[in-house]
Design a protein around this nucleic acid. Structure first.
Length: 570
RNA sequence: CGGGACGUAGCGCAGCUUGGUAGCGCACCUCGCUUGGGACGAGGGGGUCGCAGGUUCAAAUCCUGUCGUCCCGACCA
């Protein structure tokens, strides 16, 4: 490809509406163009990256025994009503009516359709297990799309679905997919960590996410992991062991239950300071509204509620912190002094977080403005549920060593669905005894466009993108320093044609611009290798520069061709 | 959906307080010059100032409404 013909426009400045570095670089280097919020055109450079990632996925999925198919992007409400998700999916599911008034939607995922595809087609246990996948555009009408392709509303996803006759068979395929995923991301140049996760709206029991660990702030999730054993989990799934010996208020002289005045002391921080006590001796009350019903969470003062865990514990669909007015309405007291004491458990659901277990002589709100109790103890031991966010340094649930935290981008996930879809949808096979049974299912996703973005988040520098060569849009950028110099141009053309012939993906920057412009663009776009044909051509030499390391070698045109072949075609 | 900010040329921005012929840089086009790190000179094209009302002799500017975009939270590949 000649640079003068390539459909690309690099920008001198970063776009104003981008925050994440991958988003900034994709726009500035001419890979994507926004059409509207969360929806982008993939320009030729981007399309090549997408093809590379997709091809790697295809090869590995096929090698793992899966078969590619392609399902409809526009779907009727019927299948969604059958699975029960038409009601619960929420506004992320983009719905519309067709001209006949039939309810339709744009596919955010394909569990329903794949289930109906397999149902009635593969009806014998002899035909199972089977794993089917597709690479396709999805649409999720996210409340807040952001970070460019890291979270678009429209994005490209590889989604696979497996069907089994037994849990053992599913377990086997789950492991098989986990191995395939590891290889896929490795081939994309990405190191990933497989972490336990919450299964969210897709449902099911066992699930793991594949995270690209990033040091940048734009990592989407916190990942907790143990350096001693191999425990790792997403923040909405991580559990930890807390040291409960230190949570006795008696240590601070509060060993008897007493009502104390705490004027205008509303926050845990202020309360700890006011009473000269550690915040882990305070039993904090956090008030939520879950599916329009009030829920009071009692949690240790130094801990925070993990709302996904709470959502799951309540089996609720939607949750939000209550307002001060709602606190007064349901509990008769303003926020800051709330407590479960004297609260009618029939009217307000009360949840005790595990962190409260073992607390003694604690401080708690009095459910009366500007007053707290000190020296409280549980009358009878309540049931404790884990709804708190793990913090770095808390102990690993397996080996009790301190946990570490890092930011990560979720690029893939695997779920064991069980019969969550097959049962309600009546998708069954006939077993060896002639009995009809629902399929046992698994599903496996990879965000293709997100993977490409994650690679940029992981590999970039002050000058631009530093693509791993496996997913770079082109391998080599040939820069004749002066396009008017026929000697330079001749040598550049010779190398270009030679590399083209042997199948190296190469760009010739034949533009009339000065060298600086071409160098800047080359680095911004992120070609893994650059061949500079400049004044050393008189000595029969050209320069070969590696983007990642910045290392430069002076080679003859013949040697540089051999070098490219060796690095890029093996 | 809650909190915050912003909509002026393809991109980045000024002008708005105090109403009076819409500007700058980059990019684009032409010519010249230049050619190892985003050169320089001359000339040129491109904007119903997000949209709709209102106030006014006159609105990018003031008022009201509305739509959109971005950031923080919850959701997710």
């Amino acid at each position: 490809m000649r640079m003068s013909k390539l459909f690309v426009q690099t920008l001198r400045e970063f776009p104003n509406d981008a925050e994440a570095i991958s988003h900034k670089l994709l726009v500035r280097a001419g890979y994507i163009k926004k059409l509207t919020s969360g929806i982008y055109s993939y320009l030729p450079l981007m399309q090549r990256v997408i093809s590379k990632v997709s091809q790697i996925i295809r090869e590995e999925m096929n090698a793992a025994g899966a078969q590619e198919l392609l399902m409809p992007f526009v779907q009727p409400s019927e299948v969604w009503e059958k699975s029960g998700r038409w009601e619960v999916y929420g506004k992320e599911l983009a719905r519309f009516n067709d001209r006949h008034g039939n309810k339709m939607c744009l596919a955010p995922t394909h569990e329903e359709v794949i289930t109906s595809v397999v149902s009635g087609t593969f009806t014998s246990y002899k035909q199972l297990p089977i794993n089917l996948y597709q690479i396709q555009t999805k649409f999720r009408d996210e409340i807040r799309p952001r970070f460019g392709l890291l979270r678009g509303r429209e994005f490209i996803m590889k989604d696979a679905y497996s069907f089994h006759t037994s849990q053992e068979s599913l377990d086997e395929e789950y492991e098989n997919m986990a191995r395939a995923y590891k290889r896929i991301f490795e081939r994309c140049g990405l190191e990933t960590k497989m972490v336990q996760s919450d299964s969210g709206a897709i449902g099911g029991s066992v699930s793991h996410e594949f995270m690209v660990l990033t040091s940048t702030q734009t990592g989407e999730n916190d990942v907790f992991y143990c350096e001693n054993c191999d425990y790792s989990a997403n923040s909405n799934h991580a559990i930890s062991i807390l040291n409960i010996n230190e949570t006795d208020g008696a240590k601070y002289g509060y060993s008897e239950k007493k009502l104390v005045d705490t004027p205008n002391v509303k926050t845990i921080e202020d309360l700890a300071k006011f009473l000269k006590i550690d915040s882990n001796c305070i039993l904090k009350s956090v008030f939520y509204i879950a599916d329009s019903k009030p829920v009071l969470v009692m949690i240790r003062g130094d801990k925070d509620v993990e709302e996904t865990k709470l959502l799951n514990a309540l089996n609720a669909l939607e949750i939000r912190p209550a307002t001060n007015d709602e606190a007064i309405e349901y509990l008769g007291c303003e926020v800051g002094y709330l407590s479960y004491l004297n609260v009618d458990a029939n009217k307000v659901k009360i949840i005790f977080d595990k962190s409260a277990q073992g607390m003694k002589n604690f401080v708690i709100g009095a459910n009366e403005p500007h007053k707290h109790y000190v020296g409280c103890n549980f009358d009878k031991t309540p049931e404790f549920v884990d709804v708190s966010l793990v913090k770095e340094g808390e102990l690993c649930p397996n080996c009790k060593k301190p946990l570490k935290v890092t930011r990560g981008i979720e690029v893939g996930n695997i779920f064991q669905l069980g019969t969550k879809y097959s049962k309600p949808m009546g998708a069954t096979y006939t077993d060896e005894n002639g009995v009809e049974k629902p399929f046992i299912m698994g599903c496996y996703g990879i965000g293709v466009t997100r993977t490409a973005s994650a690679a940029i988040e992981r590999y970039h520098d002050d000058f631009g993108i530093v693509w791993p060569k496996e997913i770079a849009p082109y391998h080599v950028d040939i820069v004749p320093v002066n396009a008017d110099d026929s000697e330079q141009m001749d040598v550049a053309l010779k190398i270009y044609n030679e590399l083209l012939n042997v199948g190296v993906e190469v760009v010739l920057d034949d533009r009339a611009d000065r060298a600086g412009v071409k160098f800047k663009d080359s680095e911004l776009i992120g070609f893994p290798y650059r061949i500079t044909v400049g004044k050393t051509v008189k000595e029969g030499l050209v320069e070969f520069k590696e983007r990642k390391t910045g290392e430069v070698e002076k080679l003859s045109p013949e040697d540089v061709i051999e070098k490219c072949k060796k690095i890029l075609l093996s």
